[in-house]
Design a protein around this nucleic acid. Structure first.
Lengths: 383, 383
DNA sequence: TCTGAAACGATCAGACTCGAACAAGCGAGG
DNA sequence: CCTCGCTTGTTCGAGTCTGATCGTTTCAGA
């Protein structure tokens, strides 16, 4: 059947792009192809195949060998010679805040970038999709960047739209502290994010071990982190068989000063009626304020009310010092840059990576009962 | 034996690059090779092997010895500038199969291990928790390993028990192609796994784009991969608004020969009554059998029934060649070793990493309708 | 230390592959 | 209708890979 050109469906001659696709497919199937064999199979001259092979080899999709081609091999000298190009890459980075949480992420990214010999250009942005896009666009226009690390707003239709746009950019994109949905519209986006649900769960289990049987949750729904914290809190409560519906779960987004004091009083009232003796407070800025409020109201921390904060930015400043879940912010930046560097080096052959990092629980005074050992931090493994 | 370089048809002749790769693989597996042995194995003259060895030695990838070659040894003074190998770690690796799927994972792991200057000890195991544990224990007892990469059976109470045991081991553990639950009992376990649900979803969306409106799923529930494939199929169906309850979803675990034929007939009958024109078949071994069965029954593939396989081990062998979702097996091994190397280097300060990799969809004849453009693979970005 | 067997590499020849240069085919646009 | 630009095919000298021969080197046992 394959004596004459057109062994495939219909003797239609293929376009060059299709031919190269066929070629890649044969290659994937067999691991290697001969110029002669493929030329016969596709009914074109060997020279044509050779030209295709050269083209694909230039893109790093195959390794050239005498008489044919193979899947790219690390032994292929020309490949390794070509890739570590002397011109170092520039990476754009757009983050939603330059004074909370993100400085450490950036610092981690910078350190790793230096290691990898990359340049990083950071821009701050607002917490909304339109501004995210503006900032990214500005980077694309004025600098010429080879890759993008970004923590976009993903809420609502605008967020989805932004994701699609990022997905379609001609340069690789890595999300930091954001998860793109696994399915279609963002299938090329890679990400690295902290598993905040795990962190919240860890806090709840710690409080449980300290003897607390009603554990509340105070969140700030204006933060993208919040839903994950709540989810983790819920899951852990369920696993510990504490009824979630009867537990204190309040949101303190957008509150300031006077309002906040009133709201905290409300929360404390709820705690009293439900018998809640421990709170997980998202954003440890809030936690600091909450602990301060408790102290002002004569409520002992941790005696009457144990508190664990979330984020560990300022938790150690409070009096008493607040236990907090600490996301590995430095590592988020570091891993994002590693992903980007690997992507730039290996190209399309590298599969899309999506990485979750576990936070750690830093124990301080606000959650550890007096009789217990106040030891803290990284050394504990038992949780 | 063949005077011509056999282009197809299992021809033994390899390109030099492939030969060198085979050589490296043998080397990684056994630690040393003899010129004579390899020459016989590959069916080339000893001189050719010698030339290859010299070439690899020049690049510092092997050490020459009289009669053969070994992995580069620090004792070999000709080795380039004495690679910094202060003390190399040993990693144990326990996988549930040595002849399906896992050889590629192992190969990827070996290659990366060599890069990182680690030693890897591989053991096969059965697909059950008790034997997993036995094999791991054997590694711990006889070799003394510094880290463990394992793909355990995680089903049932025995599986959970095994996870807890692994979690408590004094050495770092990385799971390959397995996800530990995010919560408590396995919080120290890191893992790297293919996002099979994404792969299944990609297949469904591809079939949808080809015009199919009823897409069935044929699974093998005896495989740990199966639940994820089903989940991805379900999710994608839901997103496309195809009623899942009315769709064909059959399981063919444990069937052989006669039973299988009967079962396939049953499946085809179901397809007819439901109007199903496309099937996602887990384990492409099954897919090959299924396509064969269709052809035997006079059902056109892809005309009457489009098929996408899952795993891409043998899918290309079928006639017509079967489209298949390909998990990045090499990368699973590679990333597992990277995780381990980083863990061994950085210790407990490094946060727990959990990594998902996306598979890719290899389009072949079995799912691509004649009228459509048959272009496939990496060059297309639109899916 | 000696000696035979095996391994090694320089050299050559044969078969095949590669790519430059030029010619021919095809589709788009003036 | 013709020309332009792009892709593909043909020819042929140069280049590459492999294997055979054979003299030299290395190894292991006496």
């Amino acid at each position: 059947m394959s004596t004459e050109p057109g062994p495939e469906a219909g003797g239609k001659s293929l376009f060059s792009l299709q031919r190269r696709e066929r070629l890649m497919e044969e290659l994937r199937a067999h691991g290697a192809i001969t110029v002669r064999g493929i030329a016969a199979k596709l009914g074109v001259s060997e020279l044509t195949i050779r030209r295709d092979v050269n083209l694909l080899a230039d893109e790093g999709l195959v390794s050239r060998v005498h008489g044919g081609a193979t899947l790219p091999s690390p032994l292929d000298r020309s490949a390794t010679a070509g890739l570590p190009s002397p011109h170092s890459y520039s990476i754009g980075m757009v983050v939603p805040s330059l004074d909370y949480y993100w400085p450490q992420v950036i610092s981690g990214a910078r350190a790793e970038a230096e290691e990898q010999n990359l340049r990083i250009l950071v821009r701050g942005s607002a917490y909304d999709a339109a501004d995210n896009r503006r900032q990214v666009q500005a980077l694309l226009d004025t600098q010429n960047i080879d890759g993008l690390i970004v923590a976009p707003d993903m809420t609502g239709e605008r967020g989805q739209e932004l994701l699609r746009w990022l997905n379609a950019l001609p340069i690789p994109v890595v999300l930091a502290e954001r998860r793109s949905p696994g399915d279609n519209p963002a299938h090329r986006l890679e990400w690295v994010a902290t598993d905040h649900a795990f962190g919240a769960g860890m806090a709840v289990r710690h409080l449980w071990q300290e003897g607390h049987r009603q554990i509340g949750c105070l969140t700030d729904s204006s933060s993208p982190t919040s839903p994950h914290v709540v989810r983790g809190w819920r899951q852990a409560m369920k696993a510990l068989k504490i009824p979630v519906e009867k537990s204190v779960h309040e949101d303190s987004a957008q509150l300031v000063n006077g309002d906040r004091a009133a709201h905290f009083d409300h929360v404390l009232e709820l705690c009293k009626t439900t018998g809640t003796t421990a709170m997980l407070v998202h954003s440890d800025t809030q936690a600091v304020a909450f602990v301060q409020h408790c102290v002002d109201r004569g409520i002992q921390v941790p005696g009457d009310m144990a508190v664990v904060g979330y984020d560990d930015e300022v938790a150690y400043l409070a009096e008493p010092a607040i236990s907090a879940v600490r996301p590995p912010k430095q590592y988020v930046g570091k891993v994002a840059v590693q992903l980007m560097a690997a992507r730039l080096a290996e190209g399309r052959l590298r599969p899309v990576h999506r990485i979750e990092l576990n936070p750690e629980l830093i124990l301080r005074e606000s959650s550890v009962g007096a009789p217990r050992v106040p030891a803290a931090g990284v050394l504990q493994d038992s949780l």
